[in-house]
Amino acid sequence: MAYGSVIGVLLSYVLLYKYFAIFGAIFLAGIIVPIPASELLMAVGAFAGQGYMNFWLALAAGLAGNVLGDLVDFFLARRYGTAVLRKFRLDKRKFIGALEAEVRRDAPFMIFSTRIAGALGPAVNVFSGISGVSFKKFLFYDATGNLVDIGGLLLIGYAVGSYWESFSDVVGIIVAITVVAIVMFILWRISRRIIRRGSAAGDEAA
């Protein structure tokens, strides 16, 4: 790994400033900044396994950072989301409307599952804010999803120790598989709804 790479610089900060650095990096990743959070958390798990850090404090720092980052997206979208959509005339786009409806209809699944599929997280945070998902519901599913995600990555790092780098590619592929599977599931649900609506319209016409 190149020392000047994003992950190299982040890891050196984690070794220097420990939990503050974990909180800061995961907070930025939670908002939308493209930080290799999975790799970082696996490394932190390995540091905890080697006794260089406390596992529970690392988990708490990561969880707090991610939840706060997600809440920033959620509240910004709730406050300014509709106005921004209107300004760029995105509110009339059917695709945006369908996504908004999907998030509103099945908020628990959408929020929980996209915590594990990191790349989709910020988008769902924004749509949750715009579509008026309640704060309590968002917080609950966001925190539980992040607990599973962050806890899982830390545990993998904890288990594989110094070899975490060799396993980070595998974890990256598993995360990509999860993202694709979730997108497929959402599309399948939308298509099922279209078919159902079509058959209901057919029945009415008959």
């Binding site: 592929i173 599977a181 497929m184 599309l187 298509s191 279209i194």
Partner: peptide, 20 residues
């Protein structure tokens, strides 16, 4: 719309196979 979704699902299924 249904056809577009089916096409997208087919592409994603292919991506999934590559990832596996």
């Amino acid at each position: 719309k249904g056809n577009y979704i089916k096409a997208a699902l087919a592409v994603l299924a292919a991506v999934l196979i590559v990832l596996f």
